[in-house]
Write a protein that binds this DNA or RNA. Structure first.
Length: 514
RNA sequence: GCGGGAGUAGCUCAGCUGGUAGAGCGACAGCCUUCCAAGCUGUAGGUCGCGAGUUCGAACCUCGUCUCCCGCUCCA
């Protein structure tokens, strides 16, 4: 096993052992590509979400948040293109074990016939010279006519297949004698429909038909359909943004690599509405802003890179990914897309409702352009764990495992530890705990030797431990121990609150964003 | 879905050519301890993934099945 594989396994093991992430329904052997967050995991995750939400909504006066439903009107997904784009008929070649989209195979075949026709046209054009009339040639040449008829036939049959009967697609592929580009064989499996969206139904009594509902495959559409509601009720002026954090569901054919690709996952998305023509400027703003946000967490900047999309999705005119170097290589953690007016226009058409904005400066109405930033919470979580989890060797020769989380996102801000479990130390410690718990996530622990307790806190990333000893009873001071340096110093109990606020508050992290 | 690997205590694993389960760490309770995984005593926890078969007898052999991990498409 390579070192990076080992590193990755360590992270997964650590996540489970210290209550960050568990396989879903583990007592039933787990559920593939579904995970649960445990007691420490949920705290870290909530803090990450809070960091994002505050940096978006609280720090931008022209950004507001919403929380839309997972269920949406079925037409939403028709408009967004997910019905067409997320339902693929797939076919496997039994020899090469490769999987193809059946419609793509057939379209490639059609492409070949079209190439033949074009060849004929070029040949004829050469022969006839200037007098050549392409339209007339196509309408009269027997071979060209024959090929055009073939294409029409294939298209008709493919449409019939795509509209319902998948067996027709297989027959078509067999009739056309399409071979696998890899193995060259014509040994195909049956065509199967892969629905990347999970479906359920609206009514308790029926199972199909017009009642079909989908679990949203992205949170973005919930923002688009609410764009006018928010704009009007919030009296928002372009440019403005709507932020949302929520679950999304995708039935990935291959979903793996721990929480990198899950069937149920969480997204944090901002859709930013702008005047057409200004989108690139805004795109570049968010491109920089988002990477700065990541770096501000204290993540090694060298582990980040941008990945500009060359091939753009149908809805985008610019796209960039922020990638992080996970133990198994660079992977996308966040995407920034300039989506043009694709989504709003589509919803306008499908709903029949105008989704325009009247721009008082221009004195005209238009459908705004959208710049989106979309980050996977779970990927961010794994990123942070990968970055923070460190094993270090101490001067004494011992090793310790320490989770160097930024204090603002750590599950616990401090642990309150009586040095001994007697002589009134626990009572004094409880007193301090009960005082601080209103402002900070505190962990109280009196079992085992103090060193052991320190290490346990290191493993879950608690930035500070305070220890109450006999002197504390007299002088009202405690020892505060720093997770990263392991240094200790004596501070008055009365000074703890101020010190901890300063070191662990989210506002400190946000202020550094500027 | 296909190919490859693997399922034994909370974790890491041992368990020989079949004789009804062990270690280390961890957990819990107690004792002792004045600051970095110390020591001592005790306790809990496993129908060996599940189901059949072979056998006097299966963690081990055979078949089936489930799940996880790694590769093949796409993406947050």
């Amino acid at each position: 096993m390579s070192q990076t594989e080992q590193e990755f396994k360590n992270i997964i093991a650590h996540c489970k052992e210290y209550g960050f992430v568990f396989p879903s329904s583990e007592i039933y052997d787990g559920l593939s590509a579904v995970y649960d967050y445990g007691q420490t995991g949920v705290a870290l995750k909530n803090n990450l979400k809070s960091y994002w939400w505050k940096s978006m909504v609280q720090l931008h006066e022209n950004v507001v948040g919403i929380d839309s439903s997972i269920f949406m009107h079925p037409k939403t997904w028709k408009a967004s293109g997910h019905i067409d784009g997320f339902n693929d008929p797939m076919i496997d070649n039994k020899d090469s074990k490769k999987r193809y989209r059946a419609d793509v195979l057939i379209e490639e075949f059609i492409g070949k016939i079209e190439a033949k026709i074009n060849k004929e046209v070029t040949k004829a054009a050469k022969r006839f010279g200037d007098t050549f009339d392409k339209e007339q040639f196509l309408a009269t040449n027997p071979r060209a006519l024959d090929n055009q008829k073939k294409i029409a036939d294939i298209n008709a049959r493919m449409k019939a297949g795509l509209d319902g009967d998948l067996a027709l697609l297989k027959t078509l592929i067999e009739d056309l004698e399409i071979a696998c580009p890899v193995s060259g064989s014509k040994n195909w499996t049956d065509v199967k429909q892969f629905n990347l969206m999970y479906s359920t139904q609206m009514n308790a009594t029926s199972g199909e038909g017009d009642d079909a509902l989908y679990l949203r495959p992205e949170t973005a559409q919930g923002i688009f359909v609410n764009y006018l509601n928010v704009q009007k009720t919030g009296r928002m002026k372009i440019p403005f943004g709507i932020a949302q954090i929520g679950k999304a569901f995708r039935n990935e054919i291959v979903a793996r690599q721990f929480i990198i690709r899950m069937k149920e996952f969480e997204q944090m998305e901002l859709q930013f509405f702008v005047r057409p023509g200004t989108e690139m400027e805004v795109f570049n703003y968010w491109k920089k802003n988002r990477l700065d946000w990541h770096k501000n967490l204290g993540i090694n900047p060298e582990k980040y890179r941008y990945h500009d999309h060359v091939k753009l999705a149908h809805y985008a005119n610019a796209a960039v990914d922020i990638e992080y170097k996970y133990p198994f290589g660079f992977k996308e953690v966040e995407g920034i897309h300039s989506r043009t007016d694709f989504d709003l226009k589509a919803h306008q058409e499908h709903s029949g409702k105008k989704l325009q904005y009247f721009d008082p400066e221009l004195n005209e109405s238009y459908v705004p352009y959208v710049v989106e930033t979309s980050i996977g919470v779970d990927r961010l979580f794994l990123l942070v764990m990968s970055e923070a989890l460190q094993q270090e060797t101490l001067e004494s020769g011992d090793s310790r495992v320490v989770l160097r989380l930024n204090p603002a996102i750590a599950p616990y801000k401090l642990a309150v530890l009586p040095l001994l479990k007697k002589d009134g130390l626990p009572e004094k410690a409880r007193e301090i705990y009960n005082d601080l718990k209103f402002d900070f996530e505190c962990y109280y622990e009196e079992k085992d030797a103090i060193g052991k307790r320190y290490r346990r806190q290191d493993a879950i990333g608690t930035p500070y431990c305070i220890t109450i000893d006999h002197d504390s009873l007299e002088d009202n001071q405690v020892t505060i121990r720093d997770r990263d340096t392991m240094e200790q110093k004596r501070v008055p109990i009365s000074a703890l609150s101020t010190l901890l606020h300063e070191k662990t508050d989210m506002s400190g992290l946000l202020k550094r964003l500027g």
